[in-house]
Design a protein around this nucleic acid. Structure first.
Lengths: 249, 249
DNA sequence: AGGTGAATTGCGATATCTGCAACGGTCATT
DNA sequence: AATGACCGTTGCAGATATCGCAATTCACCT
């Protein structure tokens, strides 16, 4: 592993906390100011950090552009998108698509609800991994050992009284999800919001992505939302079929 | 500038185009495969690149998370958001907020239209800089020399017959925007979409951000949209006032 | 099995990076 | 107005981390 690059990259999460000046960056990195300066310069040339008018550094614009381009080039996303739109047209609610990667689950696509009350979420935002329906679907498919290890490492924030409280409960829930082939989040993240989700599978049957439909209680009750389950599963299966007949995962 | 870091960072835009294997990365970088490998490894450890099951590399999850955190930490965005929401509630159309940074203009916030017909755009996506109302507002405030230099460097794609055709026309338009203190895009980007925008200013009067309201012809005509101008300007001024009484830009 | 293609590892030469110390600019203080 | 403190910046020489090579391992296909 390259030391220089390692140091340079360590600057990014540091700046994600908020703008910092040269001295602060050097201190946090444990290197001389001149060293930090050169690293920051290089990051700057690539547009990854931006120098604001007060000379402090913060994360730069190209970072967004990169993330943007990357997310648009994911083949699952490309294939799934029209299906998500159609589902949204049929049920009217917010539709999400998410993938698992290196201990994180993140939304890679979203079709907004047609109802005025909307759920807060954003593409690229890490998902509330212990409660979201899509997270359960993706984690349920991990190899036993990895699943267990991950469950132990996670925090279990009590967003609501219905949030998954701890690792054993989470593992049990994952087991259930694994067997039934679909998942829900009934007020586990936000008190008044429910979700139903289903997995997208690749050729080999492994789960490559997960999708869900979300709606607030004021629009439909949890039970009503569950009636959409067959539709959600059919959509997920349609995406799976199309994805399996295509490019390498 | 650091060579190693420079090379490592050059990998990112390369992967943004799509997944690539080690050999391809090494070739594009013009270095030996072993070198490319070590760089990729380092990027991997920081979560910036991900290794998919076919061993090819693509951009990783942490990149999205970083971009996400970065955008949420912009103070202008935080201050402006409630104002944008209120404006959206009053007029129903899509509202955008954008900033200028290093030769790019990009959306940093968006409140979606309440009408079923929506405009395509996404937070983090670079704006069509030669035609968008927000871009005109931001560039019009640059120092003369910089504005001129930038105008020369830009491409002027003809999205529609009403797109800004070349640098002189653009500079003239910027001059006008500068004087009148607001800007429009009437079908310059997409034939059927119009926008009206106004600048957000900091304490010193410099433009720090720009906002706009966009709507397709099928919902309101360009003239009707113009009647919203006073409301848009009032909103921009309200944001400016609140922003001026705050943290350093 | 054999063979191709790719990724990976160990190693020595050397280009690259590091930390120091001195410089220059800016802002606040007296 | 002058002084001083602070921060960012630059040039340099020594230290060392990096580079490319060549050999090895691995996986896949014929």
């Amino acid at each position: 592993m390259s030391q220089t690059v390692d140091r340079a990259l360590s600057i990014l999460p540091l700046l994600a906390e908020g703008p910092a000046d040269l001295g602060r960056v050097a201190d946090r990195l444990g290197v001389h100011k001149s060293t930090a300066l050169r690293l920051l310069r290089t990051l700057h040339e690539h547009g990854l950090v931006y120098r604001q008018s007060d000379q402090r550094y913060r994360l730069g614009a190209r970072l967004f552009a990169l993330a943007q381009e990357a997310v648009e080039n994911l083949d699952i996303r490309e294939i799934a998108h029209p299906h998500l739109v159609r589902l949204n047209e049929e049920c009217g609610h917010t539709v999400h698509l998410a993938v698992y990667e290196e201990n994180e689950v993140l939304y890679i696509d979203k079709v907004e609800s047609r109802y005025p009350v909307r759920m807060y979420s954003r593409i690229g935002k890490p998902v509330a991994i212990t409660v979201a329906a899509v997270a359960k679907l993706l984690l349920a498919d991990l190899p036993e050992a990895e699943r267990r290890a991950l469950a132990d490492k996670l925090d279990y924030p009590l967003y609501t009284p219905r949030s998954t409280p701890n690792a054993p409960a989470f593992l049990k829930e994952l087991e259930r999800v694994r067997e039934q082939g679909w998942a829900t989040d009934l007020g586990g993240h936000e008190e008044s919001i429910n979700c139903v989700g289903a997995p997208v599978r690749g050729t080999d049957g492994r789960v490559v992505a997960a999708m869900s439909v979300s709606a607030p209680n004021v629009v439909v009750t949890g039970d009503e939302l569950l009636t959409l389950l067959p539709l959600v599963r059919r959509t997920a299966e349609a995406i799976s079929r199309e994805y399996s007949g295509r490019t390498t995962p």
